[in-house]
Design a protein around this nucleic acid. Structure first.
Lengths: 340, 340
DNA sequence: GAAGGTTACTTAAACGTTTAAGTAACCCTA
DNA sequence: TAGGGTTACTTAAACGTTTAAGTAACCTTC
């Protein structure tokens, strides 16, 4: 591996001159510049990022810590989002360091360690939570980061979020338009900030249509297919079960569909279902799942751009960006069938 | 951020002594060691990995490059495998740098860049291919790496692979035992080494049971659900379609099931299906999918352990490890129904 | 009681960069 | 023609570690 010294020797200049040429700083004559560049080419020289990092104060690394939530193997969020992070980071000559945490209690320590070890220049944090220790730590430590998801409190940082309120409201409206009057909600885990906004969308839609809010139609869900299965079973046990249900994510929606089928009922004829996310599974499952689409790739891309601006001290164009999810109507909501 | 100098000053020793204490090398008296450790504690000192990396020759980073194959959002391989890499690396105080490549042509360059920039100490390469440029490059460059998958040629490197031959053979035997005589195969992409072994398993099983090899029952597949759908459609167009089909992976198996259903036929009554991988989708889909399970998490874990041994110059216990996939019998093969 | 060994340190160089400060040559300008 | 400015470099320090080499004190051993 050639170093800057080898280049300097070959070009017959000092290492400082080589550095100036490479960084386009300082005053270097055209002739010398050409000689240095030729030497660089001949030796196949690449500056050591490590030496650069030691001198400057950046590592050219972005951190992404997998939370116990996102780590569920069936969650394709992971895949699309991470691809976006890596792709976009690469376009800035950055890389993404991925770490995991076994449990929530060690999560804060993981962030602290990465900060103290100066492993990364900034973080991308996903799935904001109420009382989010990660956000609290990073804000007080003054360490650069961006988040997928809003804060639950008054913490100030750049983020991208999806408008769960508007999304769920539109989904409920769609079901009401189809004639449904008893609409259930299988909620996301209370550990996620976005649960609150979705609940608001649900309540607002009912209210605007003059429908009563019936607490028994709101089931505590979670994250997994099993959570959805159990929540739906509970709703079906009611004296008057809902005729349509919105689930907090697609995984739970699929679980709900299985629960309905296992009772000998049909989707969407007996119960219509709408999910959230538009994971690939949504179009594989039969009946295909109506859902609210989040563009994970686009969100990841936008987050990295924001973080890069932050690191460079540039102005962030839209430091708090809310994106609308798209209602994708497939078979499970009955809308496509009724119309077509 | 305190440095080793601050610790040395506080403990009233030289920085060399601090370093010796921290690395458990050199001779340091108990009293001095205790004083240094106290100073470290008081200041909350952490050694700079960057400085360490500059001195030593390692970055404490492992590289994983997402190939255009693995990057398909619906491929849950990604998720489980990467979690394993990150988890296991963390247990060695290592991190995983994830990079993507837009297309195959730029892939080699991505590896070269990471090597030349000394970004990582070693690589984990997934999904070996015939004429694999990545392997060829890393072997000739003498850069440490381990692979998920065997080489197609005589290249020598440590790897973990799944015995696709034995797996498919067992699956075919299972179908034969259920009475099937016309068994089809939807192959994986020819760009993957493992396709060949699976084909061998298919052919061997037919042969051992005295069944003829009928080339028209072998369909060129690919990787995605769509590939499976198209391949199955082709098989169903035959004058005498197969009564059972093995697919190269679960995604294609699901595609095949949808193709069967869209013709008004039933799984497993008209055509039995067995997939490969046991992705989470396999148990969500109805009928649930019989498949050959690969333990992606376990494989990732094993690979990192091998790579760490390689980096430390230790002996690798089993440098070429072949694992048996497990045949998981669910509804789509008809076996469970017949028996139960 | 001097030679040699051990113990417990310190000094200083090195890793590969960046960059402030120094310098020498040249060209203006008054 | 001395003083000052510009140009085009070089020198050397610094970033935070590791580690070979040096050193001084003490302990053996014969």
């Amino acid at each position: 591996m050639p170093t800057i010294k080898d280049v300097a020797r070959l070009a017959n200049v000092s290492i400082a001159t080589v550095s100036y040429v490479l960084n386009n700083s300082g005053l270097v004559s055209e002739a010398t510049r050409a000689r240095v560049l030729a030497a660089v080419e001949e030796l196949g020289y690449r500056p050591s990022i490590i030496a650069r990092s030691l001198k400057g104060k950046h590592t050219h690394m972005l951190g992404f810590v997998l939370s116990p939530f996102a780590r569920q193997p069936q969650d394709p969020f992971f895949n699309e989002f991470l691809s976006a992070l890596a792709d976009t980071a690469a376009s800035f000559d950055y890389h993404v360091a991925v770490t995991t945490t076994a449990d929530l209690s060690s999560e804060r320590k993981t962030y602290e360690d990465m900060v103290r070890d100066r492993r990364v220049d900034g973080f991308i944090v996903a799935d904001t939570r109420p009382d989010d220790e990660r956000l609290a730590y990073l804000v007080t430590a003054g360490f650069p980061f961006v988040a997928f998801g809003r804060p639950a409190n008054e913490l100030d940082f750049p983020y991208v979020d999806v408008d769960g309120r508007a999304g769920v409201k539109r989904a409920v409206q769609h079901l009401i338009d189809l004639g449904h009057r008893r609409i259930g909600l299988i909620e996301l885990s209370p550990a996620l900030v976005c649960r609150m906004h979705r609940r608001q969308g649900y309540e607002t839609a009912l209210q605007e249509n003059g429908l009563p809010l019936q607490p028994e139609l709101i089931a505590v869900g979670g994250l997994t297919e099993k959570d959805g299965y159990l929540a739906m079973s509970g709703l079906l046990d009611l004296a008057r079960p809902p005729t349509a249900v919105i689930a907090g994510n697609d995984l739970m929606a699929v679980g709900a569909m299985n629960a309905i089928r296992d009772r000998g009922l049909a989707v969407p004829d007996d119960v219509a279902i709408i999910g959230f996310d538009d994971i690939p599974l949504a179009s594989y499952v039969r009946p295909t799942l109506s859902t609210l689409r989040q563009d994970f790739y686009g969100i990841g891309e936008r987050l990295v751009r924001m973080l890069m601006a932050l690191l460079r001290g540039e102005e962030i164009t839209e430091p708090q960006k809310i994106l609308e999810p798209t209602l994708i109507i497939r078979e499970s909501s009955g809308g496509a069938l009724t119309k077509g």
